[in-house]
Design a protein around this nucleic acid. Structure first.
Length: 423
RNA sequence: GGAGCAGUCGCCUAGUCCGGCCGAGGGCGCGUGAUUGGAAAUCACGUAUACCGCAAGGUAUCGGAGGUUCGAAUCCUCUCUGCUCCGCCA
């Protein structure tokens, strides 16, 4: 959520930034209009309430002195009615304002490349180079099926399309990748491991920006009005919702393994085979809470931490900076890490690292107080995949496949998998 | 799932039966000052958040939402959370 005062006081700048996303104005003009009406009605109503509160102090005095308060009482009854009707109108404006504000995305930072879509993304760096195969390589879904470590057909039987069953060394590999990532981030990058609930309530989903705009993308459990988490970002970021942290606590680094659940509505026909786009996938997430002045450098080190996974696994990848048109709703700046996927013949997203500035903190109410005292300020929140586990497994199977159909286990994973080859 | 009890200012707690003197008392903690050679102890003062307003000031918040009333921490309804007992269960 953007700061309403910033919209009020620096409208032109905010408008330019929001519209640089090239997907319309997101109702920003309406926000400004509602706010104007809201504030004038608020001032008026509060004046009436001040009157009412003053009279409420008079009434017991009059009664105590044996006086007749009936005139004042009648007057106050009328005032009470007037306040009630104004408050009703006020509440409606407040709701409309909040709804409108919740639908305005974050403002991209000034150095984010401007453009309509991924074609305007800026490549930052490439690490490693795609392997040249001297045999006819297979896609990971064929490798997995042939080795009997991935079973898409039976997954479809018990759940449906876009699900997978991992089996034997496939399941072991998936688990190994999770442990490898968590060990790296907790052991070497200073992150604390969190194992959060996989279902959250509506407030949490709103706090990180998934609601109200993207309800259709998520699995909902009506009985308790819970949502299956689409990413660990949601439970982990909301850990500190409505709290005021001590400055000394910051920065906080959390990492969490969770499954992620997504409807993938609107992606019909895209990536229908394999592990790339499924309704349930595993992910290790990195989340940071920082002071405002350090968040951009923290984004760089967060991205580096995620990249380190690919470096250790010796998988070729590149980092791109998303353009304004491709940027996620809540983000001000995002680096995507893309791994080389031979079956696609291109780099495929495996991590998305974002600096949300105070956008999520404002929604979720996450603040901190500086050591010297003073007013609480909003923290900055960041997160990134570190990494998507299923896509990592897909990349491993494809990049490490051998001519005989086996797959070499990369050095860094051997102690976890307990084998040198998957055969 | 059933029964009972409880949720108040960073923490502990008073207030709720009998609505106004309660944005709210006390203790602890914390901050500033006094005292001291220094410290402990003691004493004094201060110590929530948000919004509106140029300001003076105003408004809101006693788990959350709604209601009764001129007026609600206090009364009513719903709801969430915690604890105890019962049922069920990995």
């Amino acid at each position: 959520m953007l700061d309403i005062r910033r919209i009020r006081e620096d409208y032109e700048t905010v408008y330019a930034a929001v519209t640089s996303r090239t997907h319309g104005d997101f109702g920003l003009p309406e926000v400004r209009d509602i706010d104007t009406g809201y504030r004038s009605l608020l001032t008026e109503t509060e004046g009436l309430k001040a009157k009412q509160n003053a009279a409420s102090k008079e009434i017991p005095k009059i009664k105590k002195e044996g006086g007749d308060a009936s005139g004042l009482l009648a007057e106050m009854k009328a005032l009470s009615g007037e306040i009630a009707s104004k408050e009703g109108a006020l509440r409606e404006l407040e709701t409309r304002l909040r709804d409108a504000l919740l639908n305005v995305p974050n403002t991209p930072q000034a150095d984010v490349p401007v453009g309509e879509d991924e074609n305007a993304n800026r490549e930052i760096r490439r690490v490693g180079s795609p392997r040249a195969f001297d045999f006819e390589f297979k896609a990971h879904w064929d490798i997995g099926t042939d080795l009997d470590i991935l079973d898409f057909e039976r997954a479809a039987k018990i759940a449906g399309a876009r699900f997978v069953v991992d089996k034997g060394l496939g399941a072991r590999l998936e688990r190994s990748v999770v442990n490898f990532m968590l060990d790296l981030h907790t052991g070497e990058h200073g992150f604390t491991e969190i194992l959060p609930p996989f279902m959250v309530n509506r407030d949490a989903m709103t706090g990180t920006g998934q609601l109200p705009k993207f309800e259709d993308d998520m699995f909902h459990i009506p009985a308790k009005d819970f949502f299956l988490i689409p990413t660990a970002e949601v439970p982990v970021t909301n850990l500190f919702a409505n709290e005021i942290l001590d400055e000394a606590m910051l920065p906080v680094y959390y990492t969490a393994y969770t499954p992620c659940f997504r409807k993938e509505a609107g992606s019909a026909g895209r990536d229908t085979r394999g592990l790339i786009r499924v309704h349930q996938f595993n992910k290790v997430e990195l989340v940071k809470f920082t002071k405002p002045e350090t968040s951009n450098e923290e984004l760089e080190s967060l991205t580096a931490a995620a990249e380190e996974v690919l470096k250790r696994l010796e998988l070729p990848y590149r980092v791109v900076e998303l353009s304004t048109g491709d940027l996620g709703f809540s983000s001000s700046k995002t680096y995507d890490i893309e791994v080389w996927m031979p079956s696609y013949g291109r780099y495929v997203e495996i991590s998305s690292c974002s600096n949300f500035l105070d956008f999520q903190a404002r929604r979720a109410g996450i603040k901190f107080r500086r050591a010297g005292g003073g007013k609480p300020e909003f923290v900055h929140t960041l997160n990134g995949s570190g990494l998507a586990v299923g896509r990592t497994v897909a990349a491993l199977l494809e990049n490490y496949q051998n001519a005989d159909g086996t797959v070499t286990v990369p050095e860094a994973l051997r102690s976890y998998v307990g084998a040198e080859f998957i055969r």
